[in-house]
Design a protein around this nucleic acid. Structure first.
Length: 279
DNA sequence: AGCGGAACCTGTCGGC
DNA sequence: TGCCGACAGGTTCCGC
């Protein structure tokens, strides 16, 4: 479900509401997200801590707590955070309730139970965070860095951009959209890109992500904001999920292929490895 | 290094 | 109606 723009949307909404709130109690309905770590230890460690800030790193949500510790959350495919008034019983797919001193519940729900929650005292203790590469909206994501990093890889572009240890935050939807915007073939070899193509990739990556954040992310089926509203970027998708429909630029039917067991959508005419994109 | 496949889970949708 | 496979905004581990 959520990629960088969706997680950023959630992080901003949580940041607008949670700082200053204290977690009074944690109720666990299903503990898959803890990956086998002890439930009681998790509950007791969180109870009494205050929320200082909410932020994002790659596709991870970070809750900065006091006394110092961090709740590191990954929504995977169907995880959600929502703020709710008190409820008599959990709704379907509610997995954790974090009861706040305001009386509200911070609800973690997750249909498929693939999401993860980890509590650490310092961010460096999270193995998954340590693996992450450069955030594409940070100032470290420079054209020079991108050129050097791509030059080291023979992987297809789609695969390279999905690799969170290289660029952290892109997923299946936005990689398709970025490659279309940049006029690049998802099957092209990373190290074979020409300087002009890399510049285009760099530019379109940032442009699409920023635009998607302005539209509060993409809702195709599951994604919901903290207030249960949908994102709006789905109206701006050019190729994702549009197999068979005409390319918005050249009318060639959009093609769906499978790479790394995931669907890739692209225009076989506009997105050709070594050619310039159509005007 | 890269890639295919399976696993972790649950739900929906389309075809027969 | 019912069953079955394909597919879903993700990640990780294992073997070749």
């Amino acid at each position: 479900m959520p990629e960088l723009p969706e997680v950023e949307t959630i992080a901003r909404e949580l940041e607008a509401r949670l700082p200053g709130r204290r977690i009074e109690n944690v109720t666990v309905f299903r503990a898959d997200a803890l990956g086998g770590r002890p439930v009681d230890r998790f509950r007791h460690a969180l109870a009494g801590r205050s929320i200082l800030h909410c932020s994002r790193r790659g596709k991870f949500l970070l809750f900065h707590l006091s006394p110092e510790s961090y709740l590191v959350a990954h929504l995977r495919m169907t995880g959600k955070f929502a703020l709710s008034d008190p409820l008599p019983a959990p709704l379907p797919h509610h997995r954790f309730w974090f009861s706040l001193d305001s009386g509200q519940l911070l609800v973690f729900q997750d249909l498929r139970c693939l999401g993860t929650l980890e509590l650490v005292e310092r961010l460096e203790q999270s193995r998954s965070l340590l693996r992450l590469g450069i955030d594409p909206l940070s100032e470290m994501f420079t054209l020079g860095w991108l050129k050097r990093a791509l030059a080291e890889s023979r992987a297809p572009l789609k695969h390279w951009l999905m690799d969170q240890t290289k660029v952290a935050g892109l997923g299946n939807i936005y990689v398709s959209e970025i490659l279309f915007a940049a006029g690049l073939d998802p099957k092209a070899t990373a190290r074979r890109l020409k300087p002009g193509q890399i510049a285009r990739l760099h530019e379109e990556t940032r442009r699409i992500l920023r635009q998607a954040i302005r539209k509060n992310g993409t809702t195709i089926r599951d994604f919901r904001r903290v207030d249960e509203h949908s994102g709006e970027f789905q109206s701006f998708l050019q190729v994702y999920g549009k197999a068979g429909q005409p390319c918005p630029r050249c009318r060639t039917p959009i093609r769906r292929i499978v790479q790394m067991q995931r669907s890739t959508f692209y225009c076989p005419s506009c997105q050709r490895g070594s050619r310039r994109r159509a005007a």
